[in-house]
Design a protein around this nucleic acid. Structure first.
Lengths: 646, 646
DNA sequence: CAACCAGGTCACAAGGTCAT
DNA sequence: ATGACCTTGTGACCTGGTTG
């Protein structure tokens, strides 16, 4: 499912986005996006995409509770704190209790850096950090992170973002300075209070100087190893090769080799996973390449663009309507009961609600409210913004996820209403079984269980940040995939250049989703229905950090709902929305316009037919386009704000 | 003229500006405006100062520290001392004897933090520190209060003045020490004597250790969250953004409630340049308050909003058309030759060009290229972005000005094509006489000398930053004023609540201007005509830092031009644009919608009449609304980007 | 040149001290 | 025990030198 998403990614942007993340926990999961590898003495974080959202940073808040009081507590969470004080072994949460700096990564998909490797020139181990490596990511923008082909190199000592190759090793500014001071002044550090084997990570690197220095030496830092001047080309190439190899290896190992070729056909094509920046644009989608049924008529104006507009088509308006409606129906799973499809918009909404309730019982993902011992991936600013914690067990989790990135109109999906952090509440129905790995989404076909609003806004403090992000992220993936699928089936869409297809999707997916999920927002009652079946009222959500986006979404939903569109109308409108997406950056605007015109004509036709005495419906719908644009931008803004102060 | 501008203000920009200021003495005055908000891990007391206008961009916070110390001594009040423990009551001046640490503040205008808020993260408490003593300063003598761009950060735990970012949170020395001891010695505090929910404030923070520690944890203090070294620029930016957001929110809320007072004299024309914060908020518009001619018909849906929609009007469609057209004509000076009005769109464009040329000779404002000795208001990051200066005498001036502020859709006008920095070129025709004070704009009526594109993109390095800003700002003022004037004359607009009028203007002015000035962008030749009469080609501008906004503007202009609208159509379209502005935050959406409907009907009527065989014109126009929205957002984005890395 | 690193700088924070 | 002040590091940036 990631497939399409990836396609849509722009590496650069991704980078930008990820960079905003703060550190913290890292999780490694290939499918999600950032990849970390060691190469040539450095660890690399490969930034891909879908995961942008991160949870920010550090874990504090309540999590610290435990860490202090019982520092030795081996809670899976709060890895760092325990590292220094308590049982050293407890440092990493989850699987590997080794001293690896990047240990933690709760998810099963993760691969830690093997301890055995750390002393060596590593060769390319791929890991993928998802939501957070923020530390990492956070540094990049202005920071001097050393990037290599879009990959961020990590400090071999502590795992922070490397600023370069210092004293023979990729290291961060901190470790560089530390090492420099150490050797310059020949400092003899105080003896380690523990067993001289503290793990050195970004978070705790300052707790034991002796161990830090030892680590510096052990990874190979040396005054003799300095390399001046620019990196020799050969070395660069070697690194590149190593990384690619590593990447491939990892991909293969992570997803059974062949099984996924099927499910994720576009995977390889996905720029996100490959040297991001340049390729993106030229990336090939499988969005394209099929046959089209309809082409758009009457290219309105002469085009100076290279690509000729699609040839006028002879497909009838009715065909367009039929095709688009079918496409909509068949690519909007959430819309339907497992077995039947309803035609009426009202039923549709109702169906969704029912559906939601239905799903709750079985496959829903919940986040329950456990003891607040979990490490909190939220940065202090995060907590801060939340403002008031409402009780003892409050932990501010961020809840946002970006599915894709685009230039300015992000298609990222975030829960605009909760991403600023959530307070928690007790929830009774918990299905702890549904962890990330147990995520019930089966590849080929979404099983009606996931929708962007699928999760409860409340979060299980027992879950690691990355886990939560992953889940949230995952919950959007199918919906986005569906949009892509829908786009592909819009007659004429495939005739657009790949580049334009991608751009339209980048710019429009969020808007399409807003339309598709409008019915989840009950404007009258001011509630949002999550897949859990629970409705949450706006104020509740607002108190958890909901932005104005939520309000706007409500308004939009209300107005859209008031139009009482039929499925056909909804389908065409959705198509129009997509094709009307922001045009900045399109290659061939005229083609897109022509297609848009076709679709709009069809939409008008159908609307005139269905609402003969409500002449304004069509106009109103068109006005909605502008509203959607605003929504989209609001979303981008909130996302930005979030990224900036995660 | 300022009047209107003010009206439109929201604090964001202002804030942006204020943030740049370095501290100094502060004064607390509630009504006036200091704002406290939470950001990052700290609570911030915003210091607004009239001096803000100065140095818009550059000044770095770092410098601020020093100034602080010196200033502190002289302050009349030094409340701090009393604060700590002793006479609790005595500490606060005036009214509430509450425990607010920020009590005293000599000035009577001061308002302490409300007790009711104390327990929680105070959110957005307004205080305004102006020039004199501040509680904060109280602490100053020697005390290390952390300031951020003139803002004083407060301890997240107790509200005292923060001394820095300790354990991941902005905290005071007391809480820092307390937390350190707590974790170092792993102290188990005695159980709270009450219900373990003591409020922790400066005054009482020592009463219950357990609760204090708990509070520390809850706000996010953690050993894992420590941050060493200097504050990354990125983080500073982030905070800035957060503050802006907080500010905006606050402003809006304040604005909403109190907004209705008297009109301000225009003196302080551009809000951006004037004592921003306080006045703005309470600003009153004269937008309102007059009589209206037409009201909107058929309030479509029931409204839950307080204000009833304007009563249906009996004004005919023709009246609407006539009125709006007249309004447009009479409020769009630039549009016309001094004495005559042209009706045809083509002539209109031509007229503008001529006009431009004509004006050049007399009243245009130029910026010549002098020695680069002027102070450069651009921050280094700015320079950074620009990358390469192109010569010795190059100074990177920013060229942007915000005329108004709004929530997300800034109406700020910026020269999207040059604000990222400009290289300079020599210009021969300089009219040094036109300085800020000699600004040739006479109040009542713009004299055809200023339009948003009036200035050359090149800037005189001899002018001080503020001067340039002022000038640039001024150049937009008349155009914006015209839009406001136009709005007032749209039948029914005045019937909207003041709040909504303001919000529509905030959100829509930029869009209206885009429509009005579309003809300045020649899409075919890819040139922009400045008021100087000079045309600059896109590439030229781009090389100077033009963003994609410029491209989009071109595209938009081209498409709009292609529709060949008559003046009537243009007028109505403009009205529709304004009334269709982003609705987030409107009080009474239904009224606005009703008005919109009226206008759209009129627009359709006139279009159908004029373009009987181009049925799609109307639809195309509606689609333009969405494009405008994107343009607006793009503009906001670039503006934001600019603000963040000025 | 421009990429790239050692080393310097200094804003900042942890932790220690000691009068209260 | 508290917290204002002090000492010791830390690390983000910058500068200047080195190399391809």
């Amino acid at each position: 499912m990631t497939t399409h998403l990836k396609i849509l990614d722009g590496g650069a942007e991704v980078l930008g986005q990820n960079l905003q993340l703060n550190d913290g926990v890292q999780k490694v999961n290939f499918s999600a996006g950032v990849v970390e590898c060691q190469v040539d003495g450095g660890v690399i974080a490969y930034i891909s995409s879908s995961s942008s959202a991160s949870s920010p940073s550090s874990c504090h808040s309540d999590s610290s509770n435990s860490s202090f009081q019982s520092s030795s507590s081996s809670l899976p969470s709060s890895p760092s704190s325990s590292a220094s004080e308590g049982s050293s072994g407890g440092s990493s949460c989850g699987s590997a209790g080794n001293g690896s700096s990047r240990s933690d990564f709760s998810s099963g998909t993760f691969t830690t850096i093997d301890e055995s490797q750390k002393n060596q020139q590593v060769d390319t181990l791929c890991i993928k950090t998802t939501y957070t490596s923020a530390a990492i990511l956070a540094k990049a923008p202005g920071g001097v992170s050393t990037k290599f082909n879009g990959m961020i190199l990590l400090c071999k000592v502590c795992g922070d973002v490397a600023s370069g190759f210092h004293y023979g090793v990729h290291a961060c500014e901190g470790c560089k300075g530390f090492f420099r001071r150490s050797i310059q002044q020949n400092i003899q550090y105080k003896k380690c209070l523990k067993n001289e084997s503290c793990s050195i990570m970004r978070m705790n690197r300052n707790r034991c100087q002796q161990c830090r220095f030892k680590k510096c030496l052990s990874v190979g830092m040396s005054r003799d190893a300095v390399r001046f001047g620019r990196i020799p080309k050969r070395e660069k190439q070697r690194m590149l090769l190593e990384m690619q190899t590593a990447m491939k290896t990892m991909m293969n190992s992570q997803f059974g080799s062949s099984a996924h070729q099927e499910a994720l056909p576009d995977y390889q094509a996905s720029p996100a996973l490959l040297p991001p920046m340049p390729p993106i644009v030229n990336e090939k989608l499988d969005v394209i390449g099929q046959n089209n049924q309809v082409k758009s008529p009457t290219p309105p104006a002469p085009s100076s663009h290279p690509l000729p507009p699609p040839a006028p088509s002879d497909v009838s308006k009715e065909d367009v309507i039929g095709t688009v409606t079918r496409a909509h129906r068949e690519t909007f799973m959430y819309n339907q009961e497992p077995s039947e499809i309803r035609n009426d918009a009202n039923h549709l909404m109702e169906g969704r609600m029912n559906n939601v309730k239905h799903l709750t019982k079985s496959n829903n993902i919940h986040f329950n409210n456990g003891p607040s011992t979990a490490r909190c991936p939220v940065s202090e600013s995060q907590n801060y913004i939340n403002g008031q914690h409402r009780g003892k067990n409050t932990a501010g989790y961020s809840n946002i996820h970006s599915v894709q990135y685009s230039n300015h109109h992000h298609t990222n999906i975030s829960s605009g209403f909760s991403h600023k952090g959530c307070s928690q509440r007790s929830m009774s129905d918990v299905s702890p079984a549904h962890r990330m790995n147990g995520y019930p989404c089966n590849r080929g076909r979404r099983m009606h269980l996931v929708c962007p609003m699928s999760m409860s806004p409340f979060i299980d403090p027992n879950k690691s940040g990355p886990q939560i992000w992953e889940e949230f992220s995952m919950s959007f993936t199918p919906a986005v995939k569906e949009v892509v699928e829908f786009a592909k089936r819009i007659p004429g869409f495939k005739d657009l250049s790949q580049y334009d297809q991608v751009n339209l999707l980048k710019a429009g997916t969020f808007e399409v989703l807003m339309v598709r999920f409008a019915s989840l927002f009950d404007a009258k009652e001011r509630t949002v229905t999550f897949l859990s079946g629970k409705k949450f009222c706006v104020d509740e959500l607002r108190s958890m950090g909901a932005g104005e986006l939520l309000n706007s979404v409500f308004d939009f939903s209300e107005k859209l709902g008031a139009l009482q569109l039929s499925e056909e109308e909804m389908s065409l409108f959705t198509a129009v929305v997509l094709v009307s997406a922001d045009r900045s950056g399109l290659e061939n605007v005229n083609s897109v316009e022509a297609l848009q015109e076709t679709l709009i004509r069809a939409l008008r036709t159908i609307i005139m037919k269905n609402h003969p005495n409500e002449a304004s419906t069509f106009t109103r719908l068109l006005l909605k386009l502008a509203d959607l644009r605003s929504l989209n931008n609001l979303h981008s803004d909130e996302l930005l704000a979030f990224k900036i102060h995660p």
